[in-house]
């Protein structure tokens, strides 16, 4: 995964709270052995009508929202299952960042591993951003700041390691494997019988 240090985009708004991973990608689309191609099923049951045509009222189907890379979502986004298919589907849909006042633990973890930045702001700030979804937001990963065109600056918390990984495209598996001597020592110490 290549690193990146900034995101510039207008936003798509989903006001619903507690959007769970079964809404993000329903279980019937998990029978795949691939990571790719899940974007077409992202928010499947909200996005497509029973006859397979797009639901015109759903945010991601609206023409002005096409190509937008930031999702502003209601509180407790991504709760539910540990399926990494959820961030795979959202990244495949073209999203680069999710902004909410609370983002579920496992989903947040999974997102960071797939170049999808979870940003937690105060509820009032998320609400304020939702008022102006057409503004091009500027997310500066190095500074951990989200900036609006009218000059407001929202700092957000981001683990230092996660920040480095995103910016430099650090590969976590490689990082762990580089700790092999420590792992060997641990096993020798704890599993000697």
């Amino acid at each position: 995964m290549a690193g990146f240090d900034c995101i510039r985009s207008a936003s798509v708004v989903l006001r619903e709270t507690n959007i769970d991973t079964d809404q993000i990608i329903p279980a019937r689309f998990l029978s795949t052995t691939e990571r790719k191609g899940l974007g077409q099923h992202a928010f499947n049951d909200w996005r497509w009508q029973a006859d397979g045509t797009p639901n015109p009222g759903f945010a991601f189907n609206q023409p002005h929202n096409q190509g937008r890379g930031i999702l502003l979502a209601g509180r407790n986004f991504g709760c539910g299952s540990s399926r990494e298919h959820a961030p795979w589907a959202l990244a495949d849909l073209g999203l680069k960042a999710i902004v909410s006042s609370e983002i579920a633990d496992i989903f947040r973890n999974n997102s960071l591993k797939n170049g999808l930045l979870p940003i937690v702001l105060d509820e009032a700030d998320v609400q304020a951003l939702m008022q102006r979804p057409d503004d091009e937001l500027h997310i500066d990963i190095d500074a951990c700041e989200l900036r609006t065109p009218d000059g407001r600056v929202y700092p957000f918390p981001l683990d230092a390691f996660a920040r480095t990984c995103l910016m430099q495209g650090v590969d976590e598996m490689g990082y762990l494997l580089a700790r092999t001597p420590d792992i060997d020592t641990y096993e020798a110490r704890h599993h000697a019988s």
């Binding site: 990494e84 961030p87 496992i106 591993k113 797939n114 683990d159 976590e172 598996m173 494997l177």
Partner: peptide
Amino acid sequence: FGIGTSEVGHVLASQCLLQR
């Protein structure tokens, strides 16, 4: 605790996880 598929790969490869 539950983990994602990337982490399943991490554990297979290293028997370890990165955790706060």
